[in-house]
Design a protein around this nucleic acid. Structure first.
Lengths: 152, 152
DNA sequence: CAAAATTAGATTGTGCACAATTTAATTTTT
DNA sequence: AAAAATTAAATTGTGCACAATCTAATTTTG
């Protein structure tokens, strides 16, 4: 039985989405050995980056920053708490909210993490400018993708 | 207690990895409603793209193409089999290998899937050329990231 | 040829992602 | 103020990712 060849637009190598997906997973894989000594997974590292910038955020605020929902964050934060890096407690002003605060150990981990981005940058073989351009293109793309479908 | 501000290179918004990670997840999210009528998840769609290009690959070959290991592919392929889209059977030449073949239903799903990339392209607000450039930059980045650390 | 090494796939266990539902607290409406 | 609506987290369930281990088949070596 004869079968027409795959049209170009269905070829894997043509897909921007796959290029993104593959790049993102490769990146995560490269972070893994750097983060393992810190006892962090990659998503946990992202949460810590946010908290090092601004401590005492609620789960909701963390979620907004990272585009993750409570179904992802709640168990992740419990693991960070179990590791002694953060505390979680209900706000008294609004008991629906849970505030995440760095512990002393969580805060001091920032020193150790400080080398991680340098180590990665070195691995990338991209100039600071190239990295910046690519990053900004991706941010633009994400913004475009997140627009509601009825817009434009 | 005073605390020094986060150094620039640890800021979330500076991270290329986060830009990638966020873009990749946004992309997947946008595919979801398009793939749901086909009964496919996004990774399942990627597997189908590969099989539509070349049927009868082994798990290993699929894994090479998609950069996924058997721990991910085996259960995914079982779900595709349960959905009636592929068959799995041991090769007689080498019984270690499992060959994945499209069923008639799996093959004919390609027609329905044909609109998906068009639908996405329209959503992106990128010219074909821009998309191509970004895709190729990401492929280059992935290749760079996957080089063994001792190279260069 | 037999032992050792390699290879393919499956399995197990951990940790995301995310939809959907639930619970409890707060806000808005009537 | 009471009822209705909204909101924040947590919970439940499914499906990836991926490390580590296991089993069985094949290949390489001595």
């Amino acid at each position: 039985m004869k079968r027409p060849p795959t049209p170009d637009h269905l070829l894997l190598d043509q897909q921007l989405c796959f290029a993104l997906y593959a790049a993102s997973r490769s990146f995560t894989g490269l972070y893994r050995p750097l983060l393992e000594p810190l006892g962090l997974t990659y998503p946990q590292y992202l949460v810590m980056l946010v908290l090092w910038e601004q401590d005492g955020l609620t789960v909701r605020e963390l979620g907004q920053r990272l585009q993750l929902d409570s179904g992802t964050l709640t168990p992740l934060l419990k693991r960070l708490q179990a590791a002694g890096l953060v505390d979680r407690q209900r706000r008294t002003e609004d008991e629906r909210e849970v505030e995440i605060r760095l512990t002393v150990a969580g805060l001091s981990l920032r020193e150790q993490a400080s080398d991680v981005p340098k180590c990665m940058a070195q691995r990338l073989q991209l100039s600071h400018g190239q990295m910046q351009t690519l990053r900004d293109e991706l941010k633009r793309l994400t913004r475009q993708l997140q627009r509601s479908p009825t817009e434009d």
